[in-house]
Design a protein around this nucleic acid. Sequence first.
DNA 1: ATGGCCAATTTTATTGGA
Length: 256
Amino acid sequence: MLLATWNINSIRAREERLLDWLERRRPDVVCLQEIKCTSDQFLSEAIEEAGYRAAVHGQKTYNGVAILAREPIEEVCIGFGDGGDDSEARLIAGTVAGARVASVYVPNGKRVDHPKYAHKLRWLDRFERWVAAHDLGEPLAVCGDFNIAPDERDVEKPEMWAGGVLYNEELSARFRRLLDLGLVDTFRAHHDEGGIYSWWDYRMLAFPRNNGLRIDHVLATPALAETTTGAWVDRDERKGKKPSDHAPVMVEADWP
DNA sequence: ATGGCCAATTTTATTGGA
């Protein structure tokens, strides 16, 4: 099974690119973030024609997450399901081929001294409780834009990014806590080296300079992670005309 | 090479992203 996560930065702006990519890479499951549209506006017809089902948690203008899969997506859950506020569309989960798959979009935080950063931390607390409520003996893949670069290998210019809303000690600790719950960073299970990133700013020639961060992740429960045979960033999708500022992160697994 | 912000909406500015 080929599993991908991609912050697509507007599905409507990226329709052609997404369809080309689906055709070329043929992923079995795709977690999308920042679709930036309502569920009604999601281009499910074109996606169906490409051979995919879609589960969508959209909202107007901002955020929005979805799961695409070549097999049926069952037991879809929109939001946290904890009775709290789900007006920000940042979490959707469904079961595909016997594995629970979640597409998550963690708040950016804007600036560490901004209320949005406090919101990011509260959101991560809530997300940690959501993960902890799962039986991690059952296969679960948590995929998405975490807006966290876990360690120095995940940042090209640490001196530029340290202490910001994507890379700081507090966030590294939050990420570690997710791993302490039992989830495995599937990319790190296959790569020790730094210098491989999933996001590059549109500005300042960041991509040609490889001034990037690895902030998009596929975390998996141990038994599921054990079946993975490789993980990589589909860097080509950051090239060319009208790219998203994120590239897809891909994981191949001998699953089911 | 991979290229000097981008997308949606409130649209000829503003807001949010990362």
